[in-house]
């Protein structure tokens, strides 16, 4: 059957396609601007105002200065440590907790799950948490950041939903075959829930990569700062002095500009590179979360 398309509908289609195009431009332009500025020459960039679609005088000085800077390098190291160790801790605890919450015939399940859920509604607040971490002697240690972020209750609920979707009969037959909880978890639940595990691993990973606040309150020594905190110093406190040593005043000013853009690219590229390949997992996470959210 051929459906006649009226002129209003054609109009709407054209408008819609164009509007989406505009939206994509608005979304992408800031990133393109930063990318182009990062390859620009500092002096020419300072003189330029307005739209930037191409580097103003090609220069890699921003990148060489940024990558040669010890703060960026140590920032990368701290972030990688927090990312790797933090994700291991996250996954171990989240899977253990979620498996517990997904079991049906456990006597203390209800009180323990209420004990956990209550923290989603009420918190002692920032200061008492800070004093607690300080009290157990984790100040100025990367472990403070890892411990505070060890479990996201929201992710644990997503994980539990993943376990819940595995047929109970598999669990029962494993019990009949004599398998204990640890064997069932390792041999049946984890392999079958791999898609959900991938989703929450990605969520935790991105959160660690982008986090800066806890690090800013628990870390004192600048050489332990993760990348985002170093970035905050450079972008928002305008502290590029360490990278512009041995330069004149106006030169410093100009180089500072390109360094800023270069560090944004350096810090964002890893995520933007993996994103297109993992998009479907991220999107899936929203769906699983929505079932319970």
């Amino acid at each position: 059957m051929k459906i006649k398309v009226s002129w209003q509908q054609r109009c709407f289609d054209v408008f819609n396609v164009l509007f989406m195009l505009l939206l994509m431009v608005i979304t992408l332009y800031p990133m393109i601007h930063v990318l182009m500025a990062s390859f620009s020459d500092g002096e020419e960039l300072l003189a330029h105002t307005g739209v930037l679609l191409w580097p103003k005088g090609f220069s890699l000085e921003g990148y060489t200065r940024a990558l040669g800077n010890s703060a960026i390098v140590s920032g990368y190291k701290s972030t990688l440590f927090i990312l790797v160790v933090g994700c291991l801790v996250n996954m171990a605890l989240t899977i253990a907790g979620a498996y517990f919450l997904s079991r049906k015939d456990v006597m203390w399940k209800k009180p323990i799950s209420m004990f956990i859920m209550f923290t989603m509604f009420f918190s002692g607040g920032l200061i008492p948490q800070y004093l607690t971490i300080k009290g157990i002697g984790l100040m100025d240690s990367l472990w403070a950041v890892i411990v505070v972020g060890a479990i996201s209750t929201y992710n644990m609920i997503i994980m539990r939903t993943g376990f819940d979707s595995i047929p109970e009969s598999l669990h029962e037959s494993a019990v009949i075959d004599g398998a204990g909880h640890l064997t069932i978890l390792a041999r049946i639940m984890v392999p079958l829930a791999m898609p959900t595990i991938a989703v929450i691993l990605l969520y935790y990973g991105v959160a660690h990569w982008n986090a800066w606040f806890n690090a800013s309150i628990y870390l004192r020594s600048p050489n332990k700062y993760p990348l985002q905190l170093v970035l905050r110093g450079i972008l928002l406190v305008n502290d590029t002095t360490a990278m512009t040593q041995g330069m004149g005043d106006s030169e410093t000013w100009a180089a500072g500009e390109t360094i800023k853009y270069a560090v944004i690219i350096i810090a964002t590229v890893p995520i933007l590179c993996i994103y297109p390949f993992l998009q479907k997992y991220f999107v899936k996470g929203v769906m699983i979360g929505a079932v319970k959210g």
Binding site: L93, A96, L131, T132, V147, A150, H181
Partner: peptide
């Protein structure tokens, strides 16, 4: 299995609530 999880919630959430 759930013990470390409970320890986490006590240390990071409930001790501050008391605090």
């Amino acid at each position: 299995l759930v013990l470390p999880v409970i320890v986490f919630y006590i240390v990071v959430h409930y001790v501050p609530m008391y605090g």
